[in-house]
């Protein structure tokens, strides 16, 4: 593993919302103060519940959304400074796989034509080799050669997701943002796509930002994990540490409330986190998690706890942070 390929510094995105007809716009921060790095060959998992800002983060890392504060650096260049044709050339190196395999493919064009787009735009291969390259890509993601002539509606969800991955791979990217790529798929199909992503990461030395709410999949696939809550990172570190002995109480709650095939000793009721995600329009003072936290104390309301290092490369934003072994079967 070399140095970081993608770096985010103090990333924040504000969606001001007006309340009522005459109300003044109020700040609604979807993402706040996020620092991230992704290295080549590394898969960084972003987990969190809906509304925690993980998709917004993914779009900003891709340069699809402009951050309100902070910056994203790709291979040493600030995405905000690169414009026009140069920006489009840079786009070759970063690709995205979307959640909904039914919405992410153009229903009116054949699968082969959509995979070939990237090849044509960036002149990846000479034009007489395009058909050959499309076949190679479809084969790489495990689709049959005759599928290139078909249109997206003739495929099942898992096959479409393979097409979307083939399209993303066509430009030979260095960095892929996968926004919930397996959430819409059936369990048996999900395993196919997860295996495919693991193979590709190894074969192509890809840097990947894998956004998901499914902790089992993230744990299986990712080297490093970022846990988000209400737009902020609450814990970040190696997968084994974060999911093995989580330091932040939210990570613990998330792990404990995720259903498991293996029955656990404690009854379900004892592991349930009370309450719901606070509104981002009106976030609690201090630690955003304190309203639901089982170990909160008055000091938590004072200030937003900084991400403090636990061990090498492992940080948590909690004044009472500390590794706790939880009753999750290995």
């Amino acid at each position: 593993m070399t140095g970081p390929l993608v770096q985010a510094h103090g990333l924040g995105r504000n969606f001001p919302m007006r309340q009522g007809l005459l109300g003044r716009p109020r700040d609604v921060w979807a993402v706040r103060d996020v620092d991230l790095t992704v290295a080549r060959g590394e898969t960084l998992g972003v987990v969190g519940e809906s509304g925690c800002g993980k998709s917004t983060l993914g779009r900003m890392m891709m340069g699809l959304d402009a951050p309100t504060t902070g910056s994203v650096e790709f291979d040493g260049r600030d995405l905000a400074d690169v414009k026009g044709g140069e920006r489009r050339r840079l786009a070759r190196r970063m690709q995205m796989v979307f959640q909904d395999p039914f919405g992410s493919l153009d229903p009116r064009r054949s699968v082969g034509a959509q995979i070939a787009d990237g090849l044509r735009i960036h002149n990846i291969v000479p034009s007489d080799k395009i058909a050959e390259e499309v076949l190679r890509l479809t084969e790489q993601v495990g689709l049959s050669p005759e599928s290139v002539r078909r249109r997206p509606h003739e495929f099942s969800g898992g096959q479409r997701q393979r097409v979307a991955i083939a399209r993303a791979l066509a430009t030979r990217p260095d960095f892929i943002v996968a926004d919930e790529p397996v959430s819409a798929l059936d369990v048996s199909i999900q395993a196919q796509v997860v295996n495919l992503l693991m193979d590709l990461r190894q074969d192509l030395d890809l840097a990947m930002l894998f956004i998901s709410h499914d902790l089992h999949v993230v744990r299986h696939l990712c080297n490093r994990i970022v846990v988000m809550y209400l737009g902020r990172i609450v814990e970040e570190g190696p997968a084994a540490k974060v999911f093995g002995t989580p330091a932040h109480p939210y990570t613990r709650a998330l792990l404990e409330s995720t259903p498991s095939l293996e029955p656990r000793h404690a009854a379900l009721g004892d592991r349930v986190l009370p309450g719901e995600l606070p509104s981002p329009m009106n976030p609690p003072s201090g630690c955003p998690f304190r309203t639901r936290c089982p170990i909160a104390e008055p000091a938590c309301a004072q200030a937003v706890p900084p991400l403090t290092p636990q061990e090498d490369g492992w940080r948590a934003a909690c004044i009472k942070a500390g590794p706790v072994k939880i009753a999750e079967p290995a």
Binding site: R87, R92, D100, G103, R109
Partner: peptide, 21 residues
């Protein structure tokens, strides 16, 4: 829609996206 965003992410020229997608 996602497939238009995908074209943008791919680095396609806006005119190309308009005409083809």
């Amino acid at each position: 829609l996602d497939f238009v965003t995908a074209q943008t992410a791919m680095g396609a020229h806006p005119v190309q996206i308009l005409a083809r997608t």
